[in-house]
């Protein structure tokens, strides 16, 4: 598959599998982040890139390179020390805490390495809570949650609680929660970091499927093998972007990344 790789020097020529008109969704300009302290840590040293609607992007880099910091900037969970982050045209820096919360509630979905599911609630409740702060009533939240669970292949697990699910299934619940309400963008921070390779492959296959269905997804990983299979790859090192690669032929079927729920459930046995 490496024969189709091409380096995109100009940031923002991401091609969607569906040949939509590229609409810039997320724009980072010279983003810098310094964590103050006795010895201040410079986590980001000027990051520029643009994500268009419908893209599936991997952000790759070694531990401590600033990937999570970057995700926090993109997800408006934290503000950059310098530079600007624009989400669907509006500058995050100019928004109040309340407006940012609203933005996260309606436009951004998060997936974390630790899943962060409530052990005491069913998969359906967990997914429904993804819309808790978006002003949708409970019945609608649950109805949408059922749809989202169906999308990640867990329709039959709706009434299970996380402890009854495998790691891969739990992460799929978390992905369903992020997808619930159709956010503009899904940000996943090392979603496969706690999973074995089979489950990880399933998660990536799922992300590709969701991407084909139109979702915009940014996934952080340090698994270069998995990252190489995604349409675009941004390499981060020491707070800087060292490569931004857009690969062609994203529409081709990758035999190892076809969605095969059975592979994931086998892991439980």
């Amino acid at each position: 598959m490496s024969d189709n790789v091409q380096v995109a020097d100009v940031v923002g020529i991401g091609e969607s599998a569906h040949a939509r008109a590229p609409e810039p969704l997320l724009q980072l300009q010279d983003v810098r982040k310094v964590y103050p302290g006795v010895t201040p840590v410079i986590a980001l040293r000027g990051v520029d890139f643009t994500i268009h609607r419908g893209e599936l992007v991997a952000i790759v880099g070694p531990s401590g390179s600033g990937k999570s910091t970057l995700l926090h900037m993109m997800g408006t969970l934290d503000r950059p020390t310098e530079g600007s982050v624009r989400l669907v045209g509006s500058d995050v820096a100019k928004m109040s805490d309340r407006e940012l919360a609203k933005l996260r509630a309606t436009r951004i979905g998060f997936v974390f390495q630790q899943f962060f599911l409530s052990e005491y609630e069913t998969a359906l409740e967990n997914v429904a809570d993804g819309l808790l702060y978006s002003g949708v009533n409970r019945r609608t939240r649950r109805a949408l949650a059922a749809e989202a669970l169906d999308k990640v292949g867990l329709a039959h697990r709706m009434d299970h609680r996380p402890p009854q699910l495998s790691g891969g299934e739990r992460q799929r619940v978390a992905i369903a929660r992020a997808l619930n309400g159709n956010p503009d963008i899904v940000l996943a921070d090392e979603p496969t970091g706690n999973l074995d390779s089979n489950a990880a492959a399933t998660i990536f296959a799922l992300l590709k499927k969701l991407h084909r269905e139109g979702a915009t997804i940014i996934v952080i990983t340090h698994d270069r093998g998995l990252a190489a299979r995604l349409p675009r790859r941004i390499d981060v090192l020491d707070g800087r972007i060292v490569a931004d690669v857009t690969q062609g032929a994203t529409g081709t079927v990758d035999p190892e990344l076809t969605v095969d729920w059975a592979r994931d459930t086998k892991e439980q046995a």
Binding site: D97, A101, K102, L103, F110, F112, F116, S118
Partner: peptide, 16 residues
Amino acid sequence: RSEIGLRRALGATKQH
């Protein structure tokens, strides 16, 4: 703590 973080990520305000 992590529940609070998650809720903020899901769009909860400080007030929430």
